[in-house]
């Protein structure tokens, strides 16, 4: 499988003054399940926003299928269409992503932007709504949806263009267990269908379930380690160092004891 995304020594300064990423180098292969994990504020969302060409890196280069992605290249109509058709982004806050009057309008927005045949666009919307179990919501405005429903619509709107890469920012954050389970199954099914998934999360159970390749970010916004989920999750010292697990004290009967605690699976003794 060839590299679909390449980051070469990418750094980013938020508002030109606050470091958000330092010297990030990573390669993502076609069809891969790739997770970017790290503590709050480590730069996960910033990586996804650069991958979607939303913010320009301060230094370094970003290649998509060997094509350099910069502010300049994204101004080229041909390249922008090529890039946007292929890379979909699901924002952490679904509210900011859903801006059309109804759920159906939301799903049709992307295809109509790309001048897709209207019948084909409607067929796609119907299929996506069936897949996400949101057919009954099609005429509802987004502000009348629950958090889980909004997330489904946001994913649906990104999938309508059939992107080859789907960037998901904290996809399971704030969702009930049933919707989380639905999303994990959906992501696995999309991966089976050949999509490249890039997930930014600090939910360790999610990356364990996804069996993803993991890039672990440190709190100083650097790559601490890249490796398979199983290997990263086994390394308690590493997870402790980047603040993804913590040590806590609790009681067993009348005896208090202290151990490291991660919120995936169950307590590891």
């Amino acid at each position: 499988m060839e590299n679909i995304i390449r980051f070469e020594r990418i750094s980013y300064l938020y508002y030109n003054r606050i470091p958000a990423l330092s010297d990030i180098t990573l390669d993502i292969r076609e069809g891969e399940r790739y997770a970017i994990i790290g503590a709050n504020g480590s730069g996960k969302s910033t990586i996804l926003q650069i991958m979607n060409g939303l913010i320009p890196q301060s230094t370094g280069s970003f290649l998509y299928r060997g094509h350099e992605v910069t502010e300049k290249t994204l101004r080229d109509k041909g390249f922008l269409k090529y890039f946007r058709e292929r890379v979909g982004y699901v924002f952490q806050d679904s509210d900011v992503q859903l801006f059309c009057p109804t759920v159906l309008d939301e799903l049709l927005y992307g295809p109509l932007q790309f001048e897709m045949d209207q019948t084909e666009a409607m067929d796609r919307a119907t299929e996506v709504m069936q897949m996400l179990n949101i057919e009954n919501l099609k005429d509802r405005p987004s502000y009348m949806l629950s958090g889980g429903e909004k997330k489904r619509v946001a994913i649906g709107s990104a999938l309508m263009m059939n992107p080859e890469v789907l960037l998901l920012d904290e996809p399971t954050n704030g969702l009930d267990p049933r919707t989380q389970c639905f999303l994990v199954e959906l992501m696995l099914a999309l991966s089976e269908a050949g999509k490249t998934l890039v997930i930014a999360t600090h939910d360790l159970s999610l990356i364990a379930e996804m069996h993803a390749k993991v890039a672990l970010l440190s709190e100083d916004h650097r790559i601490e380690k890249i490796g398979p989920a199983e290997e990263i999750l086994k390394d308690d010292d590493l997870l402790l160092k980047v603040n993804l697990i913590h040590e806590h004290m609790h009681y067993h009967g009348r005896e208090a004891h202290k151990h490291r605690h991660s919120h995936y699976f169950f307590h590891k003794h």
């Binding site: 094509h67 090529y82 292929r86 796609r124 069936q130 059939n162 080859e164 959906l186």
Partner: peptide
């Protein structure tokens, strides 16, 4: 879930090649 994935999502993403130089946006 697998059975529910629409056929268009299983198909390869847009096969249209990159056509640069179609004007500035």
């Amino acid at each position: 879930m697998e059975n529910k994935i629409p056929s268009f999502l299983i198909a390869r993403s847009s096969a249209a090649p990159l056509a640069e130089g179609r004007g500035r946006l």
